Amino acid sequence: MLKNEFLKKMHEYGIKLEDYQIVIDEYRPVSYFLGVYKRKDAWIIYEVGDRNNVDIMYEELSENKIFDEFYQEVLERLHSLGYVTINISKQVIQTSEEYVCNFLQKKYSISKFDAKDIWNDLKYDFHVLNEVKYFALNDKFVPSNDCYKVEGYSAQDIYEKTYLTEIGAYNYLIYLKEDPEQALKDLKNGLPRK
């Protein structure tokens, strides 16, 4: 794939490369960075170790080949960071914004604009976004033994204990992570049971 195709895919999947120390079109010899850039006629994929030692992983003249390889390296980086689990596979991570938004529109009878707004909110936490992708693909929560939890709560726990919809429960996980003290207080005091 070409660089523009690669960037389009990352956008479609909600992957913010900078959040994972991944850079394009620059050489950044700083610990833990993964990058791709063009040096003279060749494309270079590199990774930087903990002592700023740079490992040139691939060198290729073809933009197509280098970005195919870099795509795989990004998925591997996400795997190594714990985003891939038993149920959140690389295929789940590659679920597009369009697919999720179409699911949300149908399931909750909402507009395209509202679905896009939900997607944008979910992008604040890639774990939660991937759980919603799983939900969109399977119309069920990630099993409790493999789901993402914040302060001991999963989206399913929140859904079952409150009036929130499933998607509201996923958004609440983000709130729990951003402001755990207030979110826990609200959970215990302010959200009525179903």
Rank of each mutant, 00 (worst) to 15 (best):
V48Y: 03
S31F: 08
I15T: 08
Y46K: 07
K90E: 15
E166Q: 13
R51T: 15
V142Q: 01
F67S: 04
D19I: 05
V132S: 10
Y46I: 05
I86G: 04
Q156L: 09
L122A: 11
D125H: 02
D41L: 13
V132W: 02
P143M: 02
R77P: 03
I22M: 11
Q21M: 09
Q94W: 01
Y108N: 07
N120K: 14
E12K: 05
E12F: 00
L61D: 11
F67P: 06
D125A: 00
A169R: 04
K188H: 12
N120E: 11
F113P: 01
E97L: 09
V150E: 05
R77K: 15
L191N: 02
E18Y: 09
Y27T: 01
V92C: 04
D19T: 00
Y37G: 00
K106E: 14
D125P: 06
L122I: 00
V142W: 03
R51Y: 15
G14Y: 04
I44C: 04
D41M: 10
D114A: 14
V150R: 04
K123M: 15
V132Y: 03
D114L: 13
T162H: 02
F135E: 10
P29C: 12
L129H: 03
S80V: 04
K140I: 03
C147N: 14
T95E: 05
F70E: 02
Y71W: 14
E98M: 06
S111Y: 11
P143C: 07
I86P: 03
K194I: 10
K161A: 14
N138S: 09
K106C: 06
